[in-house]
Structures are given as C-alpha cells and as structure tokens.
Design a protein around this nucleic acid. Sequence first.
DNA 1: ACCTGAACACCGTTCAAGT
DNA 2: ACCTGAACACCGTTCAAGT
Lengths: 214, 214
Amino acid sequence: MKPGPRRSISQADIVDSAFEILEQKGFAAVSVRGVAAALGLTPTAMYTYFPSKNALLRAMVEQVLSTLDLDAARHSGTPWRDRLHALAAELRARLAEHTGAIVLVTSGPLDGPHARALGETLIAGFTSERMPLADAARAAHAVRAHVLGAAALDVAERPGEASVAAERTPLWTEATAYPLTEAAEALGADDDAGFAWALDRLLDGFATATAAPH
Amino acid sequence: MKPGPRRSISQADIVDSAFEILEQKGFAAVSVRGVAAALGLTPTAMYTYFPSKNALLRAMVEQVLSTLDLDAARHSGTPWRDRLHALAAELRARLAEHTGAIVLVTSGPLDGPHARALGETLIAGFTSERMPLADAARAAHAVRAHVLGAAALDVAERPGEASVAAERTPLWTEATAYPLTEAAEALGADDDAGFAWALDRLLDGFATATAAPH
DNA sequence: ACCTGAACACCGTTCAAGT
DNA sequence: ACCTGAACACCGTTCAAGT
C-alpha cells in the first residue's frame, strides 16, 4: 500500500464509517483521524473528500434526511394528517437511531438539499389543505421544531453515556421537591404515544386557526 | 503568584467566564484550558471546581435555566396561557442570547434542579386548568420540546459562523427546486410572531383535547 | 487526483509535588 | 484545600512530497 491514485473509497463510504463510529463510541469519538483509521487511510487523505470536519458532519445530516420517504408524504392517496404523522415519526426514529444525531443537527446550519426538500414537502402538505401560504410555512416550521425538540429531549432524558454517577444530582433534594413530575413519571408515559398525542394537538390547533382565521 | 490555598474564584465566576468565551468565540472555543487562561489559572486548577468539562457544561445549562422567572409563571394573577407565553418566550430568548447555547442543552442530560423545576412548573400550570395529570405531563413535555426545537432551528437558519462560503450548497440547483419555501420566505416571516403563533396552536390543541377527552 | 509523513497549534485529563 | 508543572494520549488542519 503506497501512495498514488487509489480511489478505493467514496464520500458515502466515509459517511457510513463515521456513523458506525457515532453509534459505537458516541459523538466525541467521531474524529477525522478516527474515521480515517477505520478506513485504513491517513488523516490527511480525508481532506481529499471533505474540506473540513464540519463538512463531514453536514454530509452526515444530509444522509440521515435522505432516508426520509418524501414521496410517500407527497402521495395524496391517504389524508395529509396521516402522511404527516408517518413522516414525523420517521424523522424522529432516524434521529433516535444513532445517539448524538441531534447534536449533529443542532451544531450547524440545516440548509442542505434534503433539509430544504423536507421543508418544501411540509409546506406543500399544509397548503393542500387550503391553508394560506404564510400559515403553512409557520406550520411547517412548527412541525420541524416539534420533531427536533422531541428528539433532543429524548436523548436528554436518556440515562446518558456522559453522566458518570458522581456527576449526577446529589441527595440534597431531601423531600420530593417535584411531586407532580414524580407522580406523572409513576403513570409510566410512553414516549411514542406522547409524541403522537402532542403532534395531534398541534395539528388540531392548525385546524382551528384555518377554520376561524384571525 | 505561587501555589497555595487562594480561593480567589468561585464556580459561578468560572461559569460566567465560560459564557463570555461562548459568546465571543463560539462553542468550540469553550475549553478547559481557555477558561482557565481567561481567569489566570492553570488548566489543572479547574479540576478543583469541576470534575470534568462535561460538569462545567452542565453547570452552564443550569445557570441559563436559573434566570427563568418561575415565580412569575406560578403566580395565578394572570391567565395561565399568558404566563406560559411569557415563560416560553423567556426561555427562547435565553437560548438565543448566546450562540451555541442549544448545543449545550442538546449535548447532555437535562436533569439539573432548575431543569426539573421548570418541568414541575409547567405541569402545575396545566393541571391548574383542570387538565388530567397524564395529559398535563405530556403537554409540559410538548412545550419544552417546542421551545427547544424552535431555538435549535433559529441557530440552524442563522447565517452560521461555521459555514464558510466554499462549504455552502453549490449552484447545481439550477431551477428553483423549492418554490413554496422561497415564496414563503418572500413573505418575510417574523420569527417571534411565528413562535407565538405556533405556541398558540399547540395550546388550542390542548384545549380541544381537554374539552372533549378521548 | 489521491495519498503519505512530518509538523503546528491545540485539546481533556492525570499525577506528583508544593503551600 | 488550592494550586503548579510536567506529562499522556489525543485533536483539526497545513504543507511539501511522492505516484
């Protein structure tokens, strides 16, 4: 193995390898050097494919978004509400799949082709329901925010790799300072059901605003 | 300046210094060494105050949340919807104040005392409106997700420090592939108004669910 | 065009030692 | 208890050079 034109690898291979490391060792382990080593490359060879680590991270975000079935969301066979539910659940699942995928999304601009296509699909869906464009754009924005925020809270509520026992909140919360929170937790909430419920509430709100404008 | 018990500095001073660096140089510049240098300390001295960099970041999140006026949100003088709007806007403003604050929030568990107090306050507000506890917990979760997601999209849509011109999407999007998105952008959406609108839609949805359960 | 090897300016964290 | 200095095992990125 000596230098020279090899082309043994593609950008997609690098992104795949980066995701493998992300899932196995967490976000902090996704390094240019680490990904290069996993592919049998020198760190500097990486800069042939991506101009910076940031570009790699952006490519990873785009790859996640590219797996969304936007065609299904556009197909008018079933009600828009059902298609939106499926799309939102799909995106949330993709973000939940790899730990640290949300950090990826929140650590840089979300302006790749697939990100824009997602936004376009959402606006199209709402306008197809006779919603004015301005409202449809707001609704699309709200849905994206809702999915992103839910995914972020998912990882925030997860046990968490980074939280060593010693770092966790100490015992100086003598009495139950958060009775409602604990009572609610005792009810055993299902995250998936809660997500769908909240999305339905948001869509209900859209419907009332469209029915009785201003 | 020689070694020895000095106690010249507090945990709060360190957190403040870290926020200064965060605002001035971005999230990547918030390093143990950098914060230590800004305070005239050796990097290793930092480990007297925080067991790890992660602990520092968590303390920063708690400091942000500690500035929220939960007492005002609990005060029953004004309608709950108004108080919630104020609280949500406050949190969103705090997250928007320092660039990279969302990365902070999404990069670790959200289980500090102030984070829990915020959740408790939200549940209490919804139950005070005769909402069943299970729904109130879901509603509180949805509101937190909504604010977090909106803040995340805010920074994602911002010009972005990290995005060099060369890294931006190239011109191979010949025609306008996203007509609705561009038409909506031409309408000149106000982020603050859009955020308030979406929150109202969510609250409307809660109201209909409470009025006509299951 | 694709790759290597050396180098620069950084990281977080640990450890022994000083006061 | 609070701090220093040296050290370990890492980073992202650049540059000259090889094929």
